[in-house]
């Protein structure tokens, strides 16, 4: 008797726990996006805000720009995401790219560092370990401390892409957030790092690249080269589904601007 009652109580309580799981929210349609891993933050933020407003769920598959573009071509997703401009052959296949934002990456050094300008090639050489001392490029005699982000980070991916140093970088430190990179560079006079332009503070100095400063304007007009566009890829002659069109319009609307710039990139519209 005692045992049976005990068992029954256990079951009853377990059932009451499970009972809470049965209610599912009503489906209101969904939008599938696919592509660039670097865009996860921006799409995540936009998708979340959009879902809150309309109830339409946005799914995001982090596969990479190339995979995202082919997913659109093959109709496996509604909107493709690419962190590079479309190639001519892709446009010829009937794809349209709409720039959502520009991801500008600032090259930062300690404020006391006399270096104010670096060109893309020199930056690449510093990161691959070809140049190891600041004196080689006109600075003080100090070993360059190369700070970067962890593998898989969008900023690292973008930086290595633009400087053509993919898989060749020799880092002294791999940090897991933009804030950590900035703090570390701010506390070491021989350090160099990279971070999203939007998050750079006064504690570090963003160098000009080839004489161009990383301002919002220079990033938008393309004269600052350490940047890449975030592109929404759609098909020219296939109409988007209603919910996908809504999400598309939402992303390039005035309302989305703040959400986009909050994630550290420069909105294009």
């Amino acid at each position: 008797m005692k045992k049976i009652i005990r068992l029954l109580t256990v079951m009853l309580l377990l059932l009451s726990v499970l009972a809470g799981c049965t209610n599912k929210p009503e489906e209101k349609g969904s939008v599938a996006t696919d592509g660039s891993t670097s865009m996860s933050k921006v799409i995540g933020a936009l998708g979340e805000a959009f879902e809150r407003e309309t109830g339409i769920t946005v799914t995001y598959n982090a596969t990479g720009s190339g995979a995202g573009i082919s997913a659109v071509l093959e109709g496996r997703c509604d909107i493709g995401l690419a962190s590079r401009n479309l190639k001519q052959e892709e446009i010829d296949k009937g794809l349209v790219g709409t720039v959502l934002a520009y991801d500008g990456i600032a090259i930062i050094v300690h404020p006391d560092n006399p270096i104010n300008d670096l060109d893309l090639e020199t930056i690449g050489k510093i990161y691959t370990g070809e140049i190891t001392n600041w004196s080689e490029i006109g600075g003080e005699d100090a070993t360059i401390v190369v700070i970067g982000r962890e593998a898989g980070s969008g900023t690292r991916d973008g930086f290595e892409d633009i400087t053509k140093t993919k898989d060749k970088c020799v880092y002294r430190q791999e940090l897991t957030s933009t804030g950590d990179v900035i703090t570390t560079v701010a506390s070491n006079s021989a350090a160099i790092g990279y971070a999203s332009v939007a998050s750079v503070k006064d504690t570090v100095k963003a160098v000009t690249v080839g004489g161009v400063a990383p301002t919002e304007e220079n990033i938008k007009n393309g004269s600052y080269v350490v940047q890449r566009p975030f592109v929404l890829v759609t098909k020219k002659d296939t109409k988007l589904s209603d919910s996908a069109q809504k999400f598309f319009d939402y992303m390039i609307s005035e309302k989305a601007r703040k959400i986009i710039s909050d994630t550290g990139v420069v909105p294009a519209n």
Partner: peptide, 13 residues
């Protein structure tokens, strides 16, 4: 006694 058993059951869970 039943009450006791119920309490024991809860503790067990």
């Amino acid at each position: 006694k039943i009450f006791e058993d119920i309490v024991h059951g809860i503790f067990l869970i």
